[in-house]
Amino acid sequence: MSDRVRTALGPLELPSPVLTAAGCGGTGRELAPFFDLGRLGAFTTTSVTAQPRAGRPTPRVAETPSGLLTAMGMPGPGIETFLERDLPWLVEQDVRTIVSLAGHSVEEFAELAHRLRGVPGVAAVEVNVACPNVADRGRMFARHPAAAAAAIRAVRDGTRPGTPVLAKLAPDATDIVTIALACVDAGADGLTLINTMEGMAIDTGTLRPALTGVSGGLSGPALRPVAVRCVYQVHAALPHTPIIGTGGVATGLDALELILAGASAVAVGTALFHDPLAVPRVLRELEEALAARRIERLADAVGLAHRPAGFVPPQVRPHEPEKERTP
């Protein structure tokens, strides 16, 4: 990896801006046969819960045009097994690990953060506030500034100083900028934008909802324009807050689009399900795209779309498509 693509999420220095999205890389063991996990900017774990969860019954995945609907129910072995089995394996592989946390109450988020405090191998903590809040009739933390802020504050207070805390926000909010501001005010060092967007499909054969959970989270290319919009709006309001852009990243140009909108890094998710080599491929394509535009450092491209029309930094050359060859 070249210095061209080095980036940072606050105090966390990364040799690559391409990460895995939470829940899309398994425990890491599933991807390890395909590429060196050390080439990842960071590996983001499946959201870890306080207790083991079986998740929803099947069917819990449905394909849609240019996307995927999932209603998994956050299955996982729980924090005890994660700390005993999964995190030590990632440490042995020398993988920078972002631990995603999912709680159904502020107290549960605080408990999870406390369990991680001082544990080796935790590069950052990502707070999945797209969880139902049992104290608020099951309404999602991420849809309410005060609830999202309370979850972030609980994790920030319980996390070892110096460990970045990232808030992962959902687009299903009246104003995602307001939610982002509340999370940063509560102690978030960075933001992951975005989680899936709620959608639904009906099986026209059975005449019933395609998922047992009725609705599910939409991911894949269909989500990318929403992710670009959210990253752009939040970066405009919080230009000094690092953002991980995620949602439909399948190519290097997809990654570049989110970076131009204001992301300092990107996460690959759904693409991994059909192409386990998507991460190194996206990184290679991103490097080629930066070189073609004479962008010497990825940091020079972050938020570049916010510049006035016609502004081009001296070290950046607007990309010129190849002219058609005449026979």
Score class of each variant (00 low, 15 high):
residue 241 T to P: 00
residue 143 R to W: 01
residue 269 G to F: 13
residue 256 L to G: 05
residue 20 T to H: 06
residue 88 P to N: 11
residue 118 G to N: 04
residue 184 V to G: 04
residue 149 A to E: 05
residue 107 E to Y: 02
residue 292 A to Q: 11
residue 126 E to H: 06
residue 13 E to Q: 14
residue 74 M to F: 15
residue 153 R to N: 03
residue 281 R to Y: 11
residue 321 P to G: 09
residue 255 A to N: 01
residue 212 T to R: 13
residue 170 A to R: 10
residue 247 G to A: 09
residue 91 V to I: 14
residue 224 R to K: 14
residue 294 R to H: 15
residue 177 V to A: 08
residue 45 T to D: 10
residue 113 A to K: 00
residue 221 P to D: 05
residue 142 A to E: 03
residue 313 P to C: 11
residue 326 T to N: 03
residue 247 G to C: 06
residue 86 D to S: 12
residue 91 V to W: 07
residue 305 A to C: 10
residue 41 G to W: 07
residue 24 C to H: 11
residue 170 A to S: 15
residue 105 S to K: 09
residue 234 V to S: 05
residue 118 G to K: 03
residue 201 A to M: 08
residue 106 V to M: 06
residue 9 L to Y: 06
residue 324 E to W: 09
residue 81 T to P: 01
residue 284 R to D: 15
residue 87 L to G: 02
residue 32 A to R: 14
residue 11 P to W: 10
residue 11 P to T: 12
residue 324 E to C: 02
residue 223 L to P: 03
residue 88 P to M: 11
residue 44 T to M: 14
residue 53 R to E: 14
residue 262 G to L: 11
residue 204 T to Y: 10
residue 101 L to K: 02
residue 188 A to P: 06
residue 246 T to E: 11
residue 109 F to M: 05
residue 305 A to S: 15
residue 188 A to T: 05
residue 83 L to Y: 08
residue 217 G to R: 02
residue 36 D to A: 13
residue 148 A to V: 03
residue 125 V to A: 03
residue 252 G to V: 05
residue 79 I to T: 01
residue 200 M to Q: 02
residue 15 P to R: 14
residue 66 S to T: 06
residue 240 H to W: 03
residue 59 P to K: 13
residue 327 P to I: 01
residue 209 P to V: 09
residue 282 V to R: 00
residue 177 V to I: 10
residue 146 A to S: 10
residue 81 T to C: 09
residue 106 V to T: 14
residue 117 R to A: 08
residue 232 Y to D: 05
residue 295 I to D: 00
residue 144 H to P: 00
residue 130 A to M: 04
residue 210 A to G: 09
residue 148 A to S: 15
residue 169 L to N: 06
residue 21 A to Y: 05
residue 151 A to K: 06
residue 17 P to E: 10
residue 46 T to Q: 12
residue 247 G to V: 08
residue 303 G to Q: 07
residue 54 A to T: 14
residue 187 G to T: 08
residue 101 L to F: 02
residue 34 F to T: 09
residue 105 S to N: 07
residue 204 T to S: 10
residue 174 T to G: 07
residue 161 P to T: 03
residue 273 F to I: 10
residue 276 P to Y: 14
residue 61 V to Y: 04
residue 13 E to A: 15
residue 227 A to C: 10
residue 55 G to E: 10
residue 192 T to L: 00
residue 85 R to S: 13
residue 92 E to C: 03
residue 106 V to Y: 02
